[in-house]
């Protein structure tokens, strides 16, 4: 079964064709990163304007890269939650239109579950049950995955998402947007042990996260005693150490909670997905901890961690197999 996937939940317009939930026949992503960078974050109205322009070129390319016409497509899967409402609406409108036009089944896909499914598009897919960590600009969620379409939420962030914390600290340090890769790059020349930023633990047994205290600690460190300053004076003399120490604190917290979840649920495998799963130190630490504990750690390649439609098409296939198709009245759900 060949599934056309469509993804427009945030600032990437993406379409892909995946065969039987495993083989990626095409994977097209048009990123709007440059469009939003001067604003220091995603501007929803700009994102939506770009989506409506990119939709058809991206769809057309996804089919031609796969060497197919719409006749060769058996179902259309689309992200309907969570994300920017105006952006989700556009992918869903296009998906419904294609389904009505060509008599194809429609499948609504949860973007966060799709991030987990990215690991199933690799040569050695995980075997459920496993723990799943989804880390992105909008989410920091831990799940117990019993099946690719059955996830129990174990914990999530009570304030900033981890990607948001990277963006805010990057902005504080004058590194620009997007924060994740910029902080990681700055941290390469720094000492992760130079500064001891807080690792927030929310009560015994809690698998939730909190990053706002960490972000504030970085601010206090950089502006020193001068509380009237909203942004620290530049240049920041120990910027690489600040970046490296902040990143180390984030990674420590993510890795600690994740393996607590693995232990609590007796899981034998772990999946990490989402844009922040591109972070090098996070990948290394998860892999090392997993190896030390005999836990299989599945980290999708970076281009499947950032937003893409292959993961949507792949999960869409699994949902279709389970009879979980949608009808033309499918509504978007901006918050999960």
């Amino acid at each position: 079964m060949r599934v056309l996937g469509i993804e427009t939940s945030c600032d990437e317009t993406a379409a892909a064709v995946v065969l039987d939930g495993r083989d990626i026949l095409s994977n097209v992503v048009v990123s709007q990163e440059r469009l939003h960078s001067i604003y220091g974050g995603v501007v929803p109205e700009l994102a939506c304007r770009a989506h409506v322009e990119s939709l058809l070129p991206v769809l057309d390319r996804a089919l031609s890269d796969a060497g197919l016409g719409l006749d060769g497509i058996d179902a259309v899967a689309v992200t309907y939650t969570p994300g920017l409402v105006g952006a989700l609406l556009l992918g869903v409108a296009a998906a419904k239109a294609i389904c009505l036009a060509r008599g194809k089944p429609l499948v609504g896909v949860d973007h966060l579950q799709a991030h987990i499914y990215a690991a199933y598009l690799t040569p050695t897919p995980p075997v459920p049950p496993h723990v799943s960590l989804v880390v992105s600009g909008g989410h920091t969620n831990l799940y117990l995955t019993r099946d690719v379409a059955d996830h129990e939420l174990l914990g999530s962030t009570l304030d900033d998402a981890v990607g948001e914390a990277f963006d805010k600290v990057a902005s504080l340090l004058g590194l620009g947007y997007p924060g994740g890769p910029r902080v990681e790059a700055a941290a390469r020349d720094g000492n992760p042990k130079a500064l001891r930023f807080p690792r927030t633990q929310l009560g015994p047994g809690s698998l939730d996260f909190s990053f706002s205290g960490l972000k504030t600690a970085v601010l206090y460190h950089c502006r020193g005693q001068n509380a009237s300053l909203k942004t620290p004076p530049r240049p920041i003399p120990d910027l690489p150490d600040v970046a490296a120490s902040f990143q180390a604190a984030v990674v420590d917290v993510l890795v600690a909670r994740t393996f607590e979840a693995v232990e609590a649920r007796g899981a034998r495998a772990l999946v990490c997905g989402g844009g922040v799963a591109c972070n090098g130190p996070l990948r290394e630490r998860l892999a090392a901890e997993g190896a030390a504990r005999g836990i299989a750690v599945h980290l999708p390649p970076k281009k499947l961690c950032t937003d893409n439609a292959a993961m949507v098409a792949g999960l869409g296939y699994q949902l279709a197999l389970r009879g979980r198709t949608a009808d033309l009245a499918l509504e978007v759900v901006p918050t999960s």
Binding site: C48, V52, L90, A101
Partner: peptide
Amino acid sequence: SYTGVRVGVATAKALAWAL
């Protein structure tokens, strides 16, 4: 309405393209 117009335009574009 920006959002309303976009939903109509995206729908019409996808229909015209698919057919």
